[in-house]
């Protein structure tokens, strides 16, 4: 138990000290948020609603980035550098190591949510009810788990360069096509259909629903859980194959 606590502490430290993390998952979304709610004239009818809506988009964008990029690339680094092998020699079990990493990530996600929410409040004075803040935050935290599964799938790649290239592309594609940058109703009909099958759309959509006073659509639960299973199964399969 003591070992797991220590491990969690160091995992957190490592994430915090990573400059890419700070840049991609905090700085970028907040800058985007500022630009699209203050500088670019989006011509939306209800500016207040847009500011809250776009805050949810950028928070999910931030958390998704950390889950896909940080988690997966770190795993590849530890694998290729021989560190994972080295750890196998210690009495610290692999599951405990993985759990600590998950814990570190989820704590990071929680912090990212708080920081980006706070930025929305400070930049635009976004005001939501306490339960809207709470439940949208909780939704984003929980619904980030399928993206950690995607991260662990990227973590099975053999080279750091491939992993970082692929995860960048997936991350940006998911963000744009899922309507995190621009609402999907501005998309052509064909792309709207695509979006409805993407985990990123449902990730953000759940949060959008919560701040509009609804609860997330059952379809969002279904799609996200479905993707999580698929990612986990493939990642486990690939890992099993690599080890044999």
């Amino acid at each position: 138990m003591n070992a797991i606590m220590t491990q969690c502490k160091f995992e957190l430290l490592r994430i915090f000290r990573n400059p890419y993390f700070v840049f991609w998952t905090l700085f970028m979304p907040i800058v985007f948020y500022f630009i699209f709610t203050n500088i670019v004239n989006t011509g939306v009818p209800d500016q207040n609603e847009w500011e809250a809506y776009y805050l949810m988009s950028m928070t999910t964008f931030s958390v998704m980035g950390s889950a896909i990029m940080n988690f997966g690339i770190r795993m590849v680094q530890e694998q290729t550098g021989g560190w994972s092998t080295f750890l196998k020699l210690t009495p610290f079990p692999a599951w405990a190591y993985f759990t600590s990493k998950m814990f570190g990530q989820l704590t990071m996600h929680l912090l990212s949510i708080i920081i980006v929410f706070l930025a929305g409040f400070l930049i635009n004075g976004v005001s939501l009810s306490f339960s809207e803040w709470l439940f949208s935050g909780l939704w984003i935290l929980m619904a980030s788990i399928p993206f950690l599964a995607l991260g662990s799938l990227i973590g099975t790649m053999k080279k750091v360069e491939t992993a970082s290239g692929v995860s960048n592309i997936i991350y940006l594609a998911l963000a744009v096509l899922g309507g995190m940058w621009m609402p999907i109703h501005t998309f052509p009909a064909f792309l709207q259909h695509v979006a409805e099958w993407l985990p990123s759309y449902h990730f953000a959509s759940g949060a959008w629903e919560i701040i509009s006073g609804n609860s997330p659509d059952w379809k969002s639960y279904l799609v996200l859980v479905g993707y999580m299973f698929v990612f986990m199964v493939i990642a486990t399969y690939v890992r099993g194959k690599q080890e044999s």
Binding site: F10, L13, R14, I15, R17, N18, Q77, E78, G81, G82, W83, T85, F86, L89
Partner: peptide, 15 residues
């Protein structure tokens, strides 16, 4: 009860 020094292990970053 065992310890080992292996060839070419790169220690994790940020620590």
């Amino acid at each position: 009860r065992i310890g080992a020094m292996l060839q070419e292990v790169s220690i994790i970053d940020m620590l």
